[in-house]
Design a binder for these strands. Structure first.
Lengths: 336, 336
DNA sequence: CACAGTTACGAAACCGGTTTAGAGTTATGC
DNA sequence: GCATAACTCTAAACCGGTTTCGTAACTGTG
């Protein structure tokens, strides 16, 4: 639709053949220095940019990276966590001078092979979030390089980028313990997800490490938006925890709401530590102490690893673990 | 990279020429009924999908839609509002069987013509958010169909999709008035943005309509994250408003925080109405009364309008206004 | 000066489709 | 029975690039 100068026209202007222009453009050796300069000047002058379809048809690379973004079913979908990951992905793709093709799917309803893959419009694929194992295997069967970001499952022989969930959870729990808390609850989203499982493990390890008993009554897990009921349930017991570790910030925010609605206060009546450090965490009062995940980093590392796979098909799968870090704010009270 | 059957191989299998296969695929008249069926069966069987580069090279349509997403500079960037718009855009693009190419830019740092446009990889462009006028004009000069979503400026002769900001603000303000409030403040993000300007106009019109004076001291505008200072400032005056209309939910949330930090309560000490209805609004306590913008709708309408422009280059620019609606929750107190 | 080795360029094939022009076959009209 | 029309199909050109290969001109050597 959009017209623009072609290599043929440019060749005519420069009074050379199009092969010569191509050589100039692609830094091929088989060309004289002055000719090259003259051609590149004209390229500049006419703002010529080779059409990727012509290129791609010949050399089989599209220079496009596909991103399949799994948003949750629930309206809480617009999960700010993954939005930040996407920003990291985009930045790294742009930095590497490629284009990003995006498709959303939901965990349940996945519509077969993504269109962009079926049409071979991408050189590789980044899969962000909780898609099903079957879906991932379906894509793997197409023999295209892929990298998983924060996947729901451990998938064998597949490159992935994950957070150091266990260590983060350990740190968060230990922080509560160091602040004098002994009765510590745990609330979480869907424990089928790898990240939440690992965070639970980190929690347990910290408790064990400090010789504290884990009270099963203080553990409440379920959907992302269940934090409200979780905390409400915990606070209505006769034995209450003095603190809870919430395996993500959204849950923690719902926890705030429950505490609030009971006429209580954070951290006076209940200390809370979250995980993820989404923007929300410093927009609330009191600001949430949480484990910061470097979300853009997750995305950019994923792209870097994917491009390695694209450029070298013999490259073995790469797993990258992104470190996390405790951000101390106002939602934890010191006891004693 | 990814190999897959081509039209030539398929033609050989079907024992016809590739032109015949092409006709079968594209519903051309010049082909016999049984031949067509036989070919389509084989297409099915071999899971053949024509390579878009081959197609595009010839017929000049890429079947890709570009989306340039302007995120704010500030870390609050991951604005959940635009994320929802993006979801609407994606859904509609997928529905129309096209691919989405995404690029992020920030308002300040725009890196010239987007790569995907320079390379003619898209048939049209959707521009979401607050890019500069110069940037939009630069893109317009490329003579490609574009649609603006919630732009910062009114741009002449350009298709746009906007919310009914003025009416929404009018409704919100009128609601406060009906609840007995007379001293009403207004806080807002950057008033250079069209949306916020229109919301301010709606606020003023409602006040005027109900013969209420507008106290200039009660108006505080500035950056998105300034809501905290805005409200803090308003509450420290001797004459305080009993309610404020916040021109977006993020600002309102910061308002909550200010009220909180002063040891006061919403809505007892200050009633607040927001605008946008992002997820956050029902995650907080008390839940925020706000004007709901249909964000996915903004996105999907934008795509529909863009495709009209793509399919008919004579189509005149289309401006769509998406209605909004008051969502009554808990952040407004009835007075008297 | 004859010969081989470089160097710089162009012609042509190719990538995977669509489209056009033409050819062979069958049906229709008179 | 013959000219014409209507159907099907194919070969070839084309889209915009890259790559291979042949060749002409130049360089260096004995």
């Amino acid at each position: 639709m959009i017209k623009s100068i072609t290599i043929n026209e440019l060749a005519k202007i420069a009074n050379v053949s199009k092969s010569t222009v191509s050589k100039a453009l692609n830094d091929k050796p088989d060309i004289g220095a002055e000719t090259k300069k003259r051609i590149l000047d004209i390229v500049q002058q006419y703002d010529f940019s080779p059409h990727p379809f012509g290129k791609g048809l010949k050399n089989k690379f599209t220079e496009n990276v596909g991103v399949v973004f799994c948003r949750d079913m629930h309206p809480i979908s617009a999960n700010p966590f993954y939005s930040r990951v996407l920003e990291g992905v985009e930045a790294e793709i742009a930095f590497n001078n490629r284009n990003l093709m995006l498709q959303f799917v939901t965990e349940e309803q996945t519509k077969g092979i993504p269109k962009m893959l079926r049409e071979r419009q991408v050189d590789g694929l980044i899969l962000i979030g909780s898609m099903t194992r079957e879906y991932i295997q379906l894509i793997q069967s197409k023999d295209i390089p892929i990298v998983l970001v924060d996947p729901k499952f451990e998938i064998d022989s597949c490159s992935q980028v994950v957070m150091d969930n266990e260590h983060g959870a350990f740190t968060a729990t230990q922080y509560l313990i160091n602040m004098g808390h002994k009765e510590i609850g745990f609330i979480s989203g869907d424990m089928a997800r790898l990240s939440f499982k690992q965070r639970f493990t980190g929690f347990l390890k910290a408790m064990k490490y400090h010789n504290l008993p884990v009270n099963e009554d203080y553990i409440s897990v379920g959907g992302m938006e269940k934090g409200y009921e979780h905390v409400l349930g915990l606070l209505k017991r006769k034995n209450k925890p003095t603190a809870i570790f919430s395996s993500n910030d959204i849950n923690a925010q719902y926890g705030y709401k429950a505490v609030h609605d009971l006429g209580l206060k954070v951290p006076d009546d209940l200390s809370i530590v979250g995980f993820d450090d989404i923007e929300l965490s410093h927009m609330v009062s009191p600001q949430l102490t949480t484990i910061r995940a470097y979300k853009e980093e997750l995305g950019s590392i994923a792209v870097r690893n994917l491009l390695k796979l694209v450029e070298n098909r013999d490259q073995r799968p790469i797993t990258s673990v992104i470190p996390v870090r405790l951000i101390e704010r106002e939602s934890v009270r010191k006891i004693n």
